[in-house]
Nucleic acid binder design. Structure first.
Lengths: 138, 138
DNA sequence: TTGTAGTTACGAATACATTCGTATATTTGT
DNA sequence: ACAAATATACGAATGTATTCGTAACTACAA
């Protein structure tokens, strides 16, 4: 049941993951009610998708109760990492920098966000000077 | 032949696009020779894929010469925009800021890149003060 | 206990992606 | 002009994603 690696989720599967990340562990019914707001497919379709995601190792489930409760195997953060990495290597020629510039250009960040990015950049600089080799801080 | 909209490229199609963006307009032979370095599939597979991409409107081609020469319909930059937008809305809860932070955390940017990001942020701030409504500058 | 509502399991239809074999067409060297 | 080499076009097999109908199961109320 433990898989060698978890395959990349499809677009439909990502919609379900998004709901589970937002809501926390949920039943098929819960997910489907949320999904209905943007899609027209039926309940058994949602069920089947989640069963397949279970097979793939994308979800785990708790079978003990009245109805099954599903949870994503990977955190949103972890999945973001994987997708960003893949995107950088395929579309951005391996340059995270280009992705950052592109994302900044998409929608203007708020003044507060700008400041948070700046202070993060400062930390990176400081870090680099302090410990040219290591990666960790604090 | 003009399509209402160009569909999102698949992973295989992205590999071909990457080559075309790097090389510029190319024949199937050119693309396939490049593709062979990382894949094992045959020449006619590459051909078929590029024909399908033509059908979808992802590529255009020049048929006048000895062999057909294909060109991406959308620039790398334009495609990057679309993919970044989609990613932000599906995985990053609609927040470009989160994507920026994630990308910065992936691989340490060089000091020069840090400076370029900073000066771009400064421009954004300046822009905002000068013209709180408009988007364009210069 | 039996029916009803709500659930999960399963099989199958459809659509799209990927792959290749083979047929057809075109260029070029002799 | 002909053969060999190289191109494109086409059809079909295979695999995966998406969808749903229907069967089987479960809890609960009457």
């Amino acid at each position: 049941m433990a898989r060698p690696f978890i395959p990349k989720p499809t677009d439909s599967e990502l919609e379900i993951l998004r709901i589970l990340w937002d809501r926390g562990p949920s039943s098929v019914r819960d997910v489907h009610m949320e999904l209905e707001k943007s899609k027209t497919s039926g309940y058994t379709t949602t069920l089947k998708l989640m069963q397949i995601m279970l097979e793939k190792g994308i979800l785990t489930r708790d079978v003990s109760g009245r109805n099954h409760v599903y949870t994503p195997t990977l955190s949103r953060d972890r999945t973001q990492q994987q997708m960003v990495d893949k995107m950088i290597s395929t579309v951005f020629n391996g340059s995270p920098f280009m992705l950052v510039m592109q994302a900044l250009g998409r929608q203007r960040p708020s003044p507060e966000e700008i400041n948070r990015i700046k202070s993060y950049l400062n930390e990176l600089e400081k870090d680099r000077k302090d410990r040219p080799q290591e990666g960790k801080k604090k």
